[in-house]
Computed example of a mutant assay.
Amino acid sequence: MLPLRIANATRILAETQDEYYALAIKDEIIDGTNQMTSVWEPTPSELKMLNEGGAVRLTILGTGHPPVMITAQPAPGLSS
């Protein structure tokens, strides 16, 4: 997956860490809960795997697993 620039990004993570992708995130508080949202696009080979019934895999670096949420969003210009 390739990180995309999220609309109204509030900060860029790992911007100066060459070993990681720079990740634009949007910080929000929704229903009293802090959230950091990023947007990702599957590569052509990943999209092929997904269309063939594959799944999305989430990897957390480190030994503690934070709460996470994975969702989909419509393509630019399309509404959900």
Score class of each variant (00 low, 15 high):
Ala55Ile: 10
Glu19Ile: 05
Ala22Tyr: 02
Thr16Asp: 15
Ile29Ala: 05
Asn8His: 10
Gly64His: 12
Ser45Ala: 14
Met1Asn: 00
Pro42Arg: 07
Pro67Tyr: 06
Ser79Val: 15
Met1Arg: 00
Met69Thr: 05
Glu46Ala: 10
Glu15Ile: 14
Thr63Leu: 13
Ala24Thr: 05
Trp40Tyr: 11
Glu28Pro: 02
Ala22Ser: 14
Ile30Thr: 13
Leu4Asn: 00
Leu13Ser: 06
Pro74Asn: 11
Arg11Phe: 03
Ala55Cys: 07
Glu19Trp: 01
Asp18Arg: 11
Ala72Trp: 07
Ala24Trp: 11
Leu2His: 01
Glu41Ser: 14
Ile30Ser: 12
Ser80Gly: 15
Pro44Met: 09
Asp27Trp: 00
Leu2Lys: 01
Asn34Glu: 08
Gly32Val: 08
Thr10Ala: 06
Leu13Asn: 07
Glu19Gln: 13
Leu23Ile: 12
Pro74Thr: 12
Ile6Gly: 05
Val56Gln: 01
Pro67Gln: 07
Ser38Ile: 10
Gly64Ala: 14
Val39Asp: 07
Gly77His: 13
Thr33Leu: 15
Asp27Leu: 02
Ala72Ser: 10
Tyr20Met: 08
Glu19Val: 14
Glu52Thr: 03
Asp18Gln: 12
Gly54Ile: 05
Gln73Pro: 00
Ala24Ser: 09
Pro44Trp: 02
Glu41Cys: 05
Met36Arg: 14
Leu23Val: 09
Met36Pro: 02
Ala72Lys: 03
Thr43Ile: 11
Gly77Leu: 05
Ala9Leu: 09
Ser45His: 09
Ser79Asn: 15
Glu41Ile: 02
Glu46Trp: 09
